[in-house]
Design a protein around this nucleic acid. Structure first.
Lengths: 337, 337
DNA sequence: TTGAAAGCGCTAACAC
DNA sequence: GTGTTAGCGCTTTCAA
């Protein structure tokens, strides 16, 4: 029997398929009576148009793809929400592709370089090679990078080095001198370069204040609250333990708070903690943190992409979004005499 | 300039489009020499086939859609991984749709009831109405439910009432009599009926052991670790506080552990805690919990769906998956004298 | 205001 | 082993 087609509707409504198409696409050169007949027929038959045919004819898909790592990370989810906020106001559908390893990423990116699958693609918090970019350019497919970088691509980003500096300087200003840095792995294949950048900001701030970097105060490990807790436990049970810890993400900072509680270290009196991102839970636990406009990166990234699709012009756009420090109650002046 | 088409490739390779199609679809009635010519031409032109056209012609999409709530929940992610594991071995693409409210859900379900968008659909941990099922049936589109129920649909599920009973009985066996129950809201529109079922299992176990249900020992609230922590704090600071708490999810159980630590209540000596799901973090924090085969539900659900698509037959299948209790170190005998 | 018909890029008979 | 061609369901000129 196959699916109901525009032909069936036309037959039932006793009009031509062209007329049905007009009604469905809300063109106004159709008489009210005819329109009603068509609408009724659609209803009765439970008709819904074949999108493949429509897209084949039209030459575009009205959809955009978003490739990102680990859809479970709160920061990624928040960016995606921003994208959706933009797309909700447009006619575009969003197809998210969550990848868990570099092979998967490369595979998706290769397949997505196909005009019949999406009108444009968003890359979120993921490195992408120049060859991969080239493949998209070759078929005139717009790509915008969110929290990532590759020459020749539009992008929306924040200055992670600056963010790392801001966090560290906040602690320095409070008189802290033994400041720990805790993060996920600094050199993994799917690595967000942002973690490295934040670390660099941390080191820059120390340097500018004449404090030598002490590797004993730095820990890296798997991402996640529990892993961070374990690392913080180590960091805090050594001699000359840090009086403050800057964690490269809020999730990890919350793990640090767990560890402090476990060690009966009062925060912020005996330990100051600053996070990064300002995810929802940060407010909940009163975490001092660097706020980056996660939602807005998605929103603006989506907007730029849609513009580029509409205009068919691929000139590079860059949007640098501002950072701010949110001072809550996990940081206080150092108590050293 | 438009996209490169099969025609361009044919021209370049000096063969007919049929031959190109044969090469691309790996049919073997093509001479090696011709095949190579075609492959070269594809390469040079950077050709990739128009999927819309292919699908229009073929009449199916080779893709399946999965609709689920909040892609951030660890349990949902784990189920989805199972689905992906099945699909990875097939030719099907997976398109996840994460919905955040009932309106979004209804909207997606309505749009997805269209054979040109997917060959089948998976509904994960989400209630679906009989009208919605009817719409899919009407167009012969297979639907399989994972952790959900609606007459006339295939599904893979576990017995949540039993799970709730198992958890509670474990605590009863340890001698606990004041047992708290903590969960997300029991009657929300997007409600997983599973939470209600677990609650029912809890009540059944109490009843069968002659213990009256005391509403003071039950708390419900928003989902999430922090919210659970807050609820547990309330539960544990009243007179005659429970000696054990059964949390309807591991995430919430971990929130209970947070609260216990905060109150300096030793677990399991002064408080026993049991969770539900056995997500990864459960092992990390040594949580006693009801393990449900999250990954397998996805895997099997995907398999059933693919079968139904292949056979074109929609006879209802049901797969009831087993539960087990994983005893770790958050539960111990009650200390009451 | 409506209908006839061309054609989007592809696959699969069917011919040779 | 290879080419010709009909047609998937739709939109959109062009004519009426």
């Amino acid at each position: 029997m196959g699916h109901t087609t525009i032909k069936d509707v036309a037959q039932k409504a006793e009009v031509s398929i062209a007329t049905v198409s007009r009604v469905l696409n809300e063109l106004d050169n159709v008489s009210p009576a005819t329109r009603q007949k068509v609408l009724d027929a659609c209803d009765e038959l439970g008709y819904s148009p074949n999108m493949q045919a429509k897209r084949l004819k039209l030459g575009f898909t009205n959809s955009i793809a978003a490739v990102m790592p680990f859809l479970t990370l709160p920061s990624i989810v928040e960016r995606l929400r921003g994208v959706q906020a933009t797309l909700a106001e447009s006619e575009y559908d969003l197809f998210p592709f969550s990848v868990e390893n570099p092979e998967e990423r490369d595979q998706y990116l290769e397949r997505l370089a196909n005009r019949s699958l999406a009108d444009g693609v968003l890359i979120i918090s993921m490195p992408i090679s120049s060859e991969q970019v080239a493949r998209f350019r070759r078929i005139d497919m717009p790509v915008v990078l969110i929290d990532s970088f590759q020459p020749g691509c539009s992008r929306v980003f924040t200055d992670d080095v600056l963010g790392g500096k801001m966090a560290t300087e906040h602690l320095l200003d409070l008189g802290h001198r033994r400041i720990g840095f805790l993060s996920d792995h600094l050199d993994l294949p799917m690595q967000f370069s942002s973690t490295r950048d934040r670390f660099q900001g941390y080191r820059l701030a120390l340097e500018e204040n004449g404090i030598p970097f002490d590797p004993a105060y730095q820990k890296q490990g798997p991402h996640g609250r529990e892993a961070a807790r374990a690392m913080a436990l180590e960091l805090l049970t050594t001699n000359g333990r840090p009086t403050a810890i800057f964690a490269a993400s809020d999730t990890q900072a919350i793990g640090v708070l767990d560890a402090a509680r476990e060690l009966d270290l009062s925060v912020p009196d005996e330990l100051s903690v600053v996070g990064y991102d300002d995810i929802r839970d940060a407010e909940y636990v009163h975490l001092t943190t660097i706020r980056q406009p996660l939602f807005d990166t998605g929103k603006i990234g989506g907007k730029i992409l849609i513009e580029q699709i509409a205009q068919g012009c691929l000139d590079e756009q860059e949007a640098l979004l501002p950072l701010s420090i949110i001072t809550r109650s996990t940081t206080a002046p150092s108590l050293r005499s």
